[in-house]
Amino acid sequence: SRSVIRSIIKSSKLNIDHKDYLLDLLNDVKGSKDLKEFHKMLTAILA
């Protein structure tokens, strides 16, 4: 869910600018399909 993804971003080791950017992107995501794609992208970034 959106709140879980937000929590993953906030607890990541990324610097604050990257976190803010990803949180802004997350706010722009519409629909469950796009949310799944965003989660895939985030997982790849944090891997």
Rank of each mutant, 00 (worst) to 15 (best):
S1M: 13
S1V: 14
S1Q: 11
R2W: 09
S3I: 08
S3H: 13
S3R: 04
S3F: 08
S3N: 14
V4L: 11
V4T: 07
V4K: 11
V4Y: 12
V4Q: 13
I5T: 03
I5H: 02
I5K: 00
I5R: 02
R6K: 13
R6T: 11
R6G: 05
R6H: 05
R6F: 06
S7W: 13
S7R: 11
S7T: 10
S7P: 00
I8L: 12
I8P: 00
I9A: 00
I9E: 00
K10I: 14
K10A: 12
S11G: 11
S11W: 07
S11L: 11
S11C: 04
S11P: 01
S12W: 02
S12E: 01
S12G: 02
K13I: 11
L14D: 02
I16F: 08
I16N: 13
D17A: 14
D17T: 10
D17M: 10
D17L: 10
D17Q: 12
D17S: 11
H18N: 05
H18T: 15
H18Q: 14
K19H: 02
K19W: 03
D20M: 15
D20Y: 13
D20H: 15
Y21M: 07
L22N: 00
L22H: 00
L23Q: 02
L23Y: 07
L23M: 07
L23F: 05
D24Q: 14
D24L: 13
L25V: 07
L25Q: 07
L26K: 01
L26N: 00
L26G: 00
N27Y: 06
N27Q: 13
N27P: 02
N27V: 08
D28R: 14
D28K: 14
V29H: 04
K30N: 07
K30E: 10
K30I: 07
G31W: 07
G31R: 05
G31V: 05
S32P: 14
K33F: 07
K33P: 05
K33E: 11
D34C: 06
D34T: 06
D34N: 13
D34V: 06
D34H: 12
L35H: 02
L35K: 02
L35D: 01
K36W: 08
K36L: 13
K36P: 03
E37I: 13
E37L: 13
E37M: 11
F38D: 00
F38K: 00
K40A: 10
M41P: 00
M41F: 09
M41W: 10
L42F: 04
L42N: 00
L42C: 00
L42H: 01
L42D: 03
T43M: 15
A44P: 02
A44W: 09
A44V: 13
I45Q: 04
I45D: 02
I45E: 04
I45F: 07
L46S: 01
L46G: 02
A47L: 11
